[in-house]
C-alpha cells in the first residue's frame, strides 16, 4: 500500500463537547436538578438564593458524574442495545478511561463543593447517592436480579432528600415522603419502558423483569407499584409541604395513573377511557405524573407564601 493510501485510511478521533455532554445523561441530570430544586425551595427555613443555586449546580454535576461512570461500566452492554448504541463510548468517540476520569473528577468536585457551599450532610448524601448508583445498582444489581431497578431506583429518588438537607441541614419526614414518591414511581416508569423495548434487553442479557418473568408478571408488578404510589402522595398532602390544592390534584393524577396500569393489565372491559391504552401511554404519562407532582408542591408552597388565608384554611382542614 502506498503512503498516500495509508494516509487516506487514517482518521484522527477527537471527542467533541457534545460527546462529553452526552456522557452526563442529561435527562437524568434534569430530573435530579428539578426535584432537588423544588425540595430546596419548599423546605422550611431560609437559604441565600446564590448558595441555593451553587448547591443545585453541584447536585446537577454529581448526577452527571454518576451518568458518566454508569456509561463507563456499561459500555459493553450499551453497544449491544439499539437504544444505547449511539452513546459516546460504544460509538467510539470517547474511550472508557476518558469517561472514568471525567466521571471521577466530577464526583469529587461536586461532593467537595456541595460540602463547602451548603453543609456536610448534603455532601455526604450526594456522595452516597453516586456510590449507590454506581456500586450497588450498576456494578452489582443490574446484571444479577430482575429487581435491579426497584432497589437501584433509590439513587434516583435521593435528590429531593439532598435538596432538603441543603436548606435544613437535616432529613425530615417530608423529604422521606418525596423520596418514597420517586422510589415507588421508578418501577412502573421503567418497566413500561422495558415493555416497549423488550427485544433490546433480551439481546444484552440484562435480567429485566420482562425477560425473566414475562410480560404478564411485569404488568401485574406495575399495577402493584401504582397502588403503592398512592400512599406517599396521600400522606404528603397532610404534611407541612402539602395542602388542599395538592390533595385534590394528586387524587386526579393517581386515578389516571391507576387507570392506565389497570388498562395495561386488561381490566379495561367496559371502561371506555382505558380502552387501547398500552405501555407507551403509561410511560409517557409517568413522566408527566412525576413532573406534575413536584410542580404542585411548588405551587402549594407559593400559594401559602403569597396567600396567608389559604395557609390558614389548610391548617384548619388538617386539624379537622
Amino acid at each position: 500500500m502506498s503512503r498516500s493510501a495509508v494516509e487516506n485510511e487514517i482518521t484522527l478521533i477527537e471527542a467533541s463537547t457534545q460527546d462529553y455532554i452526552a456522557l452526563l445523561k442529561f435527562r437524568v441530570m434534569r430530573l435530579a436538578i428539578f426535584t432537588a430544586g423544588v425540595a430546596i425551595l419548599i423546605a422550611p427555613g431560609s437559604i441565600n438564593p446564590v448558595v441555593a443555586i451553587g448547591s443545585l449546580i453541584c447536585i446537577g454535576i454529581g448526577a452527571g458524574a454518576a451518568g458518566a461512570l454508569n456509561m463507563w461500566w456499561d459500555a459493553d452492554i450499551d453497544s449491544i442495545m439499539i437504544r444505547t448504541a449511539t452513546r459516546p463510548i460504544p460509538a467510539g468517540k470517547i474511550t472508557g478511561d476518558q469517561a472514568l476520569s471525567f466521571g471521577l473528577f466530577l464526583t469529587f468536585f461536586s461532593v467537595i463543593f456541595l460540602g463547602l457551599f451548603a453543609n456536610y450532610l448534603s455532601a455526604f448524601l450526594l456522595a452516597g447517592t453516586i456510590a449507590f448508583y454506581i456500586v450497588i445498582y450498576t456494578m452489582f444489581l443490574k446484571r444479577r436480579t430482575p429487581h435491579n431497578i426497584v432497589i437501584g431506583g433509590a439513587s434516583g429518588a435521593l435528590p429531593p432528600v439532598i435538596g432538603w438537607a441543603v436548606t435544613t441541614n437535616s432529613i425530615g419526614l417530608e423529604s422521606i415522603l418525596m423520596f418514597l414518591l420517586i422510589f415507588l414511581w421508578t418501577p412502573p416508569h421503567f418497566w413500561s419502558l422495558c415493555l416497549m423495548t423488550k427485544s433490546d434487553y433480551s439481546k444484552s442479557r440484562i435480567p429485566m423483569l420482562t425477560e425473566t418473568h414475562g410480560e404478564g408478571k411485569t404488568k401485574r408488578q406495575i399495577l402493584f407499584y401504582s397502588v403503592l404510589l398512592l400512599l406517599p402522595s396521600f400522606v404528603i398532602s397532610f404534611t407541612s409541604i402539602g395542602g388542599l390544592f395538592y390533595l385534590i390534584s394528586m387524587v386526579a393524577l393517581n386515578v389516571v395513573f391507576l387507570s392506565l396500569a389497570l388498562g395495561l393489565n386488561g381490566f379495561d372491559q367496559g371502561i371506555v377511557l382505558l380502552r387501547g391504552k398500552g405501555e407507551r401511554q403509561l410511560f409517557l404519562y409517568s413522566i408527566f405524573y412525576l413532573f406534575a407532582h413536584f410542580v404542585l408542591l411548588m405551587g402549594e408552597f407559593l400559594l401559602k407564601f403569597f396567600s396567608p388565608f389559604y395557609s390558614d384554611l389548610v391548617r384548619i382542614l388538617v386539624w379537622i
Partner: peptide, 21 residues
C-alpha cells in the same frame, strides 16, 4: 476522509472543547 480534512476536524473539535472548558 483524507488526513487533511481529518486533522482540520480534529483541531476544530479540540478548539470548541477548550472554548467550553
Amino acid at each position: 476522509m483524507d488526513l487533511d480534512q481529518s486533522k482540520e476536524d480534529f483541531y476544530a473539535k479540540r478548539k470548541n472543547r477548550n472554548f467550553w472548558l
